[in-house]
Amino acid sequence: MLSYVMRRLGYGLVMILAVVVLNFLLIRIAPGDPAEMIAGEMGGISAELLNDIRISYGLDQSVWVQLWIYLKQIAQLDLGTSFFFDKPVAELIGARLWPTLLLVLSAQIMSIIVGTVLGALAARNPRGMMSNFVGVFSLLGYALPVFWTGIMLIILFASWIPIFPVQGMTSARFDGGSLAYALDVLHHLALPSLTLAIIFLAQYARISRASMIDVLGADYVRTARAKGVSERRVVFWHALRNAILPLLTVAGLQFGNLISGALLVETVFNWPGMGTLAFESILRRDYPTVMGVLIVGAVMVVVANILTDISYRFADPRIRTGGR
C-alpha cells in the first residue's frame, strides 16, 4: 500500500507541474495588461509609470524567464504576491480556503447520501413510480446549469418564500456566541450547498440505481432472501455495500467538477471562497492570485483522487488480493 501511495503521489506531482506550466502560459497570452490595471487603480496611466510597474513585478521579462522564476518560487512553496491586493497569495487563499471546503464537502456529502438512498429505493422496483421519478430527476438535475439552478432557488426560497438569506456567509450584524455563529453559517450555507449538490445528486442517484439493480440479481442476494432476511436488510445491508463501490470512483473523479462548479455558485451567492477570489482576480488581471487558486485547486483534486483510490482498495477486497 505504501509503494502504491508513493507512486500515486509521484503521478500527482507530475500532473500539478503540467497544470502550473499550462495555466501559466495560457494566462500570459490572454488579452489584458496587469500593469494598466495597477496603474489605473493608482489614479493615472503614463508610459513611465507602466514601465516602472512592469519592472517592479518582473513583467518586462520574457514569458519563459517569468515561468522559470515562478517554478522556482513554487518549489519553495511560495505562491508569490498579489498584484492587486499587494499581499502574499498564500495569505489570501488561506482566508478563502475553508469557506470553499465547507461548501464543496457539504455538497459532496449531501449528494452522495441522498443520491445513494434514492437510487437504492428506485432499484427495489425498477418499473415503479419511484424509479421513474429518479430517472426524470436525474435527467433534469444533470441538464440544468448550476448558475440557473442557484438563481431559481434564490427566487423561490429567498423571494417568494423568504426563509433563507440571499448572499454572504454570515449575517451583516451578527452578534452571538459560537453556537449561534455555526447556526448562522449553516443557514447561509443551505442554498449554495443545495445548488451545488443537485447536479451531482442526480448523477449519483442514477449510478446507484443501475448498480443496485445489477447487485440485487446476484446469487448471494437471492440466498439472503431465501433465508428469510427482511427486504430492508437485504437492500441496505447486503446489496448496498457492494453497489456503492462504483460511486466511490465517480465521487473522486467528479471532485474537480465540484470545485469548478463551486466557482459559479460562490459568484451567484457572493460566498467568500476561492471561487469569488478567482473571479475577482481574473477581472483584475492578478496573475499570481489566479495561479495560486488554480494550483490549490489542482492539489485538492489530486489528493481527492488518491484518497478515492485508497478507499476503493479498502472497500473491495478483490483489489487488495489482486495487488498481492
Rank of each mutant, 00 (worst) to 15 (best):
M1W: 08
M1A: 04
M1P: 12
M6H: 01
R8D: 01
L9G: 06
Y11S: 14
Y11A: 12
V14T: 15
A18M: 13
L22G: 14
L22M: 15
F24E: 04
R28I: 09
A30Y: 05
G32H: 03
M37V: 14
G43T: 01
S46E: 08
L49P: 03
D52S: 08
I55G: 00
G58H: 06
W64K: 06
V65K: 14
Y70N: 07
Y70H: 13
I74C: 10
A75D: 02
F83M: 12
P99A: 03
V114N: 01
V117E: 00
A123M: 03
R127V: 07
M129G: 11
F133C: 14
V134A: 06
P145K: 03
V146K: 05
F147W: 12
G150M: 10
I155Q: 00
I155F: 05
L179D: 00
L183P: 09
H187G: 11
H188F: 13
L191E: 07
A197E: 07
I198W: 09
I199T: 15
M212N: 13
D214Y: 09
L216N: 01
L216Q: 01
A218R: 15
V221E: 10
E231K: 06
V234K: 07
V235C: 00
H238L: 02
N242I: 10
A243Y: 04
I244K: 00
A251G: 11
I259R: 12
G261S: 11
T267M: 05
T267H: 09
T267V: 08
F269H: 04
F269G: 03
A278F: 15
E280L: 14
I282P: 01
D286F: 07
Y287T: 13
V290N: 06
I295G: 00
V301P: 05
T308E: 01
R318T: 08
I319G: 02
G322K: 10
G322C: 01
